[in-house]
Design a protein around this nucleic acid. Structure first.
Length: 445
RNA sequence: GGCCCCAUCGUCUAACGGUUAGGACAUCGGGUUUUCAAUCCGGUAAUCAGAGUUCGAUUCUCUGUGGGGUCACCA
């Protein structure tokens, strides 16, 4: 019978849960899930000085946002008795010993517990990297606990993984050199050796391990910037793994089906924010229409909070949705658009240089004449049927007759928006409504 | 520096030892109703170097070079 797969994610609450950990957690989650196994979240807070509750909250909040459920949850700080039991046992067997020390730094003890190194070669077959061998001699008799109540990382992980029946340890390659000493401890404990899979590191643009100096690195920062959790997961999954075909967009469930440790890369991958943005946009497209509308409004309204109070605003917001939707790759872009003033003309009449109304070398008189044509034509439209299609048909008819569409469309667009870059004049006019449109055209004339 | 790992376009990557070395992001050019956006089409762009094995190496071996990780009474 196949042994049940058990994986785990063991973050330490000494900092914000970051993007590299997100991917490690994801691979562990995917592997457990696709094998009908169990995924454990274990808070590694043996270092009481540095561990903070706020960071633990940040970790669990990240999992919640990413919608990655964990089957079991533990805190190492609540398992002191367990470690103590194993420590005592090893002490009795003289596999570890209490060692008198000369404290070199402040806070160092005069007495710690060291592991009696058997000085042997440790070899394992890594699921990602293949065979790896270390000579543990240069590790010497390493410290595994400060005292019976205070185990250190290496000891606590090994005990926990053993006790929790972890079958597959999927972690970053920065843990490769930790593996031999952990295997040493495990052998002393008489535990069964799990499979190891050391996945490639996520790198910054300079190819060094991704860290704070590379910018936004905490998972929840991506929520604040308006990224979709499934897009972030999709993106990090693709750093160091591929499905073996050209497909790039996956939901979490699809990743569960497709993921394979065999297709995990050996070398590190650079975190490329442009690709994330593209993937996020693709995921927005996958969202139901109502969901997109809800999100755009939720980000748009607060961004416009500084605008002049106007009862019209409430009516304008929903109309802006299609314009915004095709211009953003993440919700946070809405805030940027507003801050850059890109949509300002929808809320108040623009001021602009009248020379900007001129299209290429067209004489000013002709521009004026064209604007008058447009104004008259639009005047004839029904106020209650002042819709984009209607306006477009009306204006295009005139524009085509002119021979040069730009001579009409540019000045109209500019008169309405006062902006070098904007959506087309038809949709702007429909959103502004008949009165405001005519008024702005008149002003331009 | 010791130990360990790695090496295909700028980036993420594909390629039973036989391909014009493929795709995606980015970039550049063009089309699509005036600008922007969206969309479509197209272009530029890579096997770290040198030996060896082989009829034939991106692929296997060795050496070099380069990059990274790790060397705590942190995790």
């Amino acid at each position: 019978m196949q042994e049940k797969v058990i994986t785990r994610m063991p973050p330490s609450p000494t900092g914000l849960f970051h993007i590299g950990s997100v991917r490690t957690a994801l691979y562990n989650y995917l592997y457990a899930k696709q094998n009908g196994g169990k995924f454990i979240l274990r808070i590694e807070d043996t270092d009481r000085e540095r561990s903070k509750k706020e960071f633990e909250d940040n970790i669990t909040e990240s999992f919640k946002w990413l919608k990655m459920p964990y089957g079991e949850f533990y805190r190492q700080s609540e398992r002191t008795e367990i470690y103590k039991k194993y420590l005592k046992n090893l002490l009795d067997q003289k596999i570890i010993y209490v060692s008198k020390e000369e404290p070199k730094e402040e806070g160092e003890r005069g007495e710690v517990i060291r592991f009696k190194n058997p000085n042997k070669k440790i070899k394992w077959n890594d699921l990602v990297l293949g065979e790896i061998e270390f000579d543990t001699t240069d590790l010497e008799d390493f410290v595994i606990a400060k005292d019976l109540e205070t185990p250190l990382y290496h000891f606590a992980v090994v005990v926990d993984d053993m006790e929790m029946g972890v079958t597959h340890i999927i972690r970053g390659q920065d843990h490769i050199s930790n593996t031999p000493r952990q295997i040493l401890i495990l052998e002393a404990l008489g535990g069964e050796r799990p499979q190891y899979a050391h996945i490639p590191l996520i790198l910054g643009a300079d190819k060094s391990k991704l860290s704070k100096r590379h910018g936004a690195v905490s998972a929840l920062e991506y929520r604040e910037q308006g990224y979709l959790p499934e897009a972030l997961l999709n993106f990090v999954a693709l750093i160091g793994w591929n499905p073996g075909n050209d497909r790039e967009i996956f939901t979490l469930d699809e990743l569960v089906k497709e993921f394979s440790l065999k297709k995990v890369q050996k070398s590190g991958g650079v975190f490329n924010i442009e690709k994330l943005d593209w993937i996020n946009k693709e995921h927005i497209k996958l969202l139901p229409k109502e969901e997109i509308e809800k999100n755009i409004l939720a980000w748009l309204k607060p961004a416009c909070a500084g605008f002049r109070e106007n009862t019209q605003n409430e009516k304008i917001f929903p109309k802006l949705i299609p314009i915004i939707e095709e211009r953003i790759s993440k919700w946070g872009d809405i805030k940027d658009m507003i801050e850059r003033g890109e949509l300002r003309f929808f809320f108040e009449a623009p001021n602009y240089d009248k020379l900007k109304l001129i299209f290429k070398n067209t004489p000013a008189e002709k521009i004026k004449h064209n604007l008058e044509l447009a104004r008259k034509a639009l005047e004839n439209l029904d106020e209650n049927n002042f819709e984009t299609e209607e306006i477009k048909n009306t204006l295009m008819l005139i524009a085509d007759n002119l021979g040069s569409r730009g001579e009409l469309l540019h000045p109209v667009r500019y008169a309405l928006s006062g902006a070098d870059k904007s959506p087309d004049p038809f949709i702007i006019a429909s959103i502004l409504g008949k009165n405001e449109t005519l008024s702005r055209l008149q002003k331009a004339i």
